[in-house]
């Protein structure tokens, strides 16, 4: 009986916290789905409308921004998966001189990440003429120390006997990688892909610095350009645009909630 009461008490507390936590977001949702006059004015039967979303969509080239983000995350993800796999494979399967030092040097990127080096990376990019290009945004992120670390940890758990058996069968370095290491690391690839996609979908400062023209802007930068309230855009439009640009991630999260959480965990612990 006491246990049951406790449970109800904790549950109430948890839901209360969840409600408070959700408030800023729900307030934004309310405003996005209602007419401007209901912005600060809660009438329960206020008519719902999608007009804000249509108007925001018309007011700025969001379709183009979405396309740019899509291209950007595709480039980064493919490069990350390929390059990190190669490096992790070299570290796990082979020994070579200075491998310890090289690994430490790679791990430096975990701390000194590209966001911090915006000044010099901008200069590098302008020297090679890559300012205001999508490839330019992606360049500092193509190799990821986090990805290398994650895959190295995973590859180390691959049983040696499997590798040896494949060699006896006459498989070369590439076949061993492709047929043994990569398939066994599939869950980690998925986990890494989810983390990487959400990171680059959300990335803002570096793309803001590198891009000047709408043709290459990702959604985050596009949103910030659109949503400058001083320029007289209405709050309901700003909120609609904010939700619109994050909707794909939110929808994906609600559908894959369990997998997302499990994968974030896996990415964190290993």
């Amino acid at each position: 009986m006491k246990k049951g009461m406790n449970k109800i008490l904790w549950s109430t507390l948890g839901l209360l916290l969840a409600a408070v936590w959700g408030l800023p977001f729900l307030y934004s949702v309310w405003t996005a789905f209602h007419d401007e006059i209901y912005s600060a004015n809660f009438v329960l039967n206020a008519p719902l409308t999608l007009e804000n979303f249509f108007e925001a969509w018309r007011a700025a080239p969001f379709a183009l921004y979405f396309l740019n983000t899509l291209i950007l995350i595709t480039i980064v993800l493919i490069a990350n998966l390929v390059l990190c796999t190669l490096v992790a494979y070299a570290f796990v399967r082979y020994r070579f001189r200075w491998s310890g030092i090289l690994f430490a040097l790679i791990m430096v990127q975990l701390l000194v990440s590209p966001e911090i080096l915006i000044v010099e990376n901008y200069l590098t990019l302008s020297r090679i003429g890559m300012i205001d290009t999508i490839l330019g945004i992606s360049l500092p992120y193509l190799t990821s120390a986090f990805g290398i670390f994650l895959l190295r940890q995973t590859f180390m758990t691959v049983p040696v006997s499997l590798d040896e058996a494949a060699q006896i069968e006459g498989a070369g370095a590439w076949r061993v990688l492709w047929n043994i290491y990569v398939p066994l690391a599939k869950p980690i690839y998925l986990a890494y892909a989810l983390v990487s996609i959400s990171f680059h979908w959300n990335n803002f400062l570096w793309p803001l610095i590198v891009t000047n023209s709408p043709e290459v802007r990702p959604v985050t930068v596009g949103l910030s350009v659109f949503a400058t309230v001083e320029s007289g855009v209405e709050w309901s439009l700003v909120n609609a645009a904010t939700l619109m640009t994050t909707a794909p991630l939110i929808i994906a999260f609600i559908i894959f909630q369990r997998q997302f959480v499990a994968n974030f965990m896996r990415a964190g612990i290993k």
């Binding site: 936590w21 977001f25 959400s198 979908w201 959300n202 990335n203 803002f204 985050t220 949103l223 910030s224 904010t242 939700l243 640009t245 994050t246 991630l249 939110i250 999260f253």
Partner: peptide
Amino acid sequence: PTMLPMIA
């Protein structure tokens, strides 16, 4: 909130 971009 973790899923949302900081800008949103």
